[in-house]
Nucleic acid binder design. Sequence first.
RNA 1: GGUGGCGUAGCCAAGUGGUAAGGCAGAGGUCUGCAACACCUUUACGCGUAGGUUCAAAUCCUAUCGCCACCUCCA
Length: 451
Amino acid sequence: MKIFNNLTRQLEDFIPIHSNRVNIYTCGPTVYDHSHIGHARSCMTWDMVYRYFKHKKYQVTWIRNITNIDDKIVKRALEANSSPDKLSREFTYEFWADMHALNISWPDLEPRATDYLIEMFAFIQELIDKNFAYVTKNGDVYFRVHKHVNYGQLKRQSLEQLAEGISRVDENELKESQLDFALWKAFAREPETSFNSPWGIGRPGWHLECSTMIKAILNSQNLGDTLDIHAGGDDLIFPHHENECAQSECLSGKALAKYWMHNGMVMVNGSKMSKSEGNFFTIKDLLAIYKPNTIRYFCLSTHYKKQINFGHEALEAAEQGFDKLVKFLETPSDEPLNQELIQAFENAMDNDFNSAQALALIFENKDNKNIPTLIFLLKILGFDLNNQETTANNEKSEAALAQVMDLVLDLRKTIRENKDFVTSDKIREALSKAGINVKDYRDKASEWELN
RNA sequence: GGUGGCGUAGCCAAGUGGUAAGGCAGAGGUCUGCAACACCUUUACGCGUAGGUUCAAAUCCUAUCGCCACCUCCA
């Protein structure tokens, strides 16, 4: 297998650190709102990767964190007269529901930031002891970026170049360098929104949780300090992943991850969908209109690294195409699996998870009529062929039923007026068997209800 | 300003040196009382533009234009 490693910017042979084991950590959501289609794209990508590793018989552990403490969570919680813990749990459940609806696998581990505070304290203290971090007079703890020789390795920029970009940001006089980032932020506005630490009341810096949880999980299984794969959205490369690298590498002296993978951003009308722009759709919005398989097909028919433009025209086309394929696959067949096709599929997927090419192969091989093989391959990609429903389907079918019943009763009215009671009774009985009660009246139009 | 990415048919999208996959839409046909569905056939002398290297370039090099992202919370 070959993977494009964003650290080296090269396509590399994938060789796990521990024989057949693959440890992959992907950055999960900050849970303070409903998940959007950017999360869907990202989770869909790593689900596809996870499933493919499993198909290739690797012993894979997928870790995806939940960020459940953060300024935005605190802000929302206070607005909603809730608490950060309660609010973040509420949206964690929503996130899980969305993931489940999209048929995205459950990660093997799903650590939450606030469950690792003790480990974070130890992490920070060790960095302070090793002179990589310093405490300010107000109780912040910052990481000394200049002490890390490789800082900028992911972003591919020197400290000077990075400093140029940061010059627009508000000056923070507590920092030794404006590039330094917070490991711990003094914060005590509301007691329930902050935590006690050796450096006073506050909350952890965003980057710290990933580094800490990765260390804790790997160490607990005697897997050293280096992940096989660390992944996340393109927008996390800097500063998030860069800072994770810095913290972890300074602490352990080892690389944080062997391979770095990043998925492309979701665009809406040609510009990036983002919270600050407010131009985002939630997963629930999408599931009301499109089937889960449509969304999966849409996501996987573009290579994971590329930006993807969400638009109704494109999703419509995806739905048309995939529905047709699903219909074709309903034909019963007991042909043996076509190993040649499976090999071609694997060749595509082995090349940095080229799911677009893999899907094209499936369509192309409809001609071979080997339905079991096509279903086998679609399952590897995570399609659930038994679920072709949208969440709005119930409403749709209710509306359709109402219209059909209007029509039936109207036709039957004519039949009764013509005194063809044999036919009209036949209709009423058939409807009754279908669970629909028809009520005829002497003085008004017939009515119906479900029983 | 710095850094990275992208530009392939009406739309989406593979292809990274060997003569343009696939999907949607469109066109023609089979089927049908007529449709719809399904199925069959078909749709880029050209891969942003201009040069160059090569027997051979969408693929490599140079220049150029356009779009996007990151450097601020983000998947």
